[in-house]
Nucleic acid binder design. Structure first.
Lengths: 135, 135
DNA sequence: TCCTAAATGAGAATAATTCTTATCAAAGAT
DNA sequence: ATCTTTGATAAGAATTATTCTCATTTAGGA
């Protein structure tokens, strides 16, 4: 089962219309902000409280259903792609794209297996690839 | 000349006490927020307007004197280290440390010289290394 | 020293996020 | 199917971060 409902229940979360529509929004918007999600939900039909969206997003992050994306801005973006991946950041727009590259992952993991960082235990390696999208 | 004043004048910026103390703060605080900088300046002696700090920071970023750091939080942090480097992020605290590794840089550049990303022109590669600092 | 464009201060305005509390609803127990 | 309880949501206030506005000041070249 890959339904939205099963994703919630797998994490021991109650299934509510709000949570389902937030999860749906995350899967249908590219790295959305909380505001993107609110607008997306309100567009179609239902209303939702702003505080609920923030609270649910935090819950999802805690439960590992989604991740926060790092940006240089003062607004938090979320990512529903759980498979390990990197990000392409546009240097002139806000566009961010997922970048999956297992070969790169192997190289990075291999490199840091040999080369320890003194006083630091690595848990995750994410490459930020900044540049320009051609069209 | 590596004085703070020369850093400003090299970029064609007027030398003001506010700019000097902001630059000084950036070099003396580890990846500060605007608020960290304000507190640092007010601690010692001089007062400074909050708006001025934000404005000057933006100017510095535009001129390439400092950089914004990417984080998962909704607060912007700055970095005065201009040499290309990566970052170590603590997964349980807000600590961020610079990580310089030219060997890694060569591997990454070499990798993406061979492996193009379709529709994307790379300008900068920054690795986010998340994990735990041992004390 | 004077002049002018640029910088700053002060506070209002905006934006993003969190908090509070009353009401509501999911889902397990009956 | 209904009840009950615990957790979820709505609404709006509060907080925090950042930006904007505009009057005043100042750096630095003329």
């Amino acid at each position: 089962m890959f339904s939205l409902k099963s994703k919630l229940s797998e994490k021991g979360l109650k299934i509510t219309p709000q949570r389902l529509s937030i999860l749906d929004a995350i899967y249908n918007i590219n790295h959305p902000t909380a505001d993107d999600i609110i607008k997306h939900i309100r567009q179609k039909h239902s209303n939702i409280a702003i505080g609920t969206v923030y609270k649910v997003l935090e819950t999802f992050v805690q439960k590992g259903l989604i991740k926060r994306i790092t940006t240089e801005k003062d607004v938090i973006r979320y990512d529903g792609l759980l498979r390990h991946h990197h990000h392409l950041y546009s240097t002139d727009t806000v566009l961010i794209k997922d970048y999956i590259d297992e070969e790169l992952d192997k190289i990075l993991v291999g490199y840091f297996k040999k080369k320890q960082i003194h006083g630091f235990e690595i848990e995750e390696l994410t490459l930020q690839i900044k540049g320009k999208f051609n069209n």
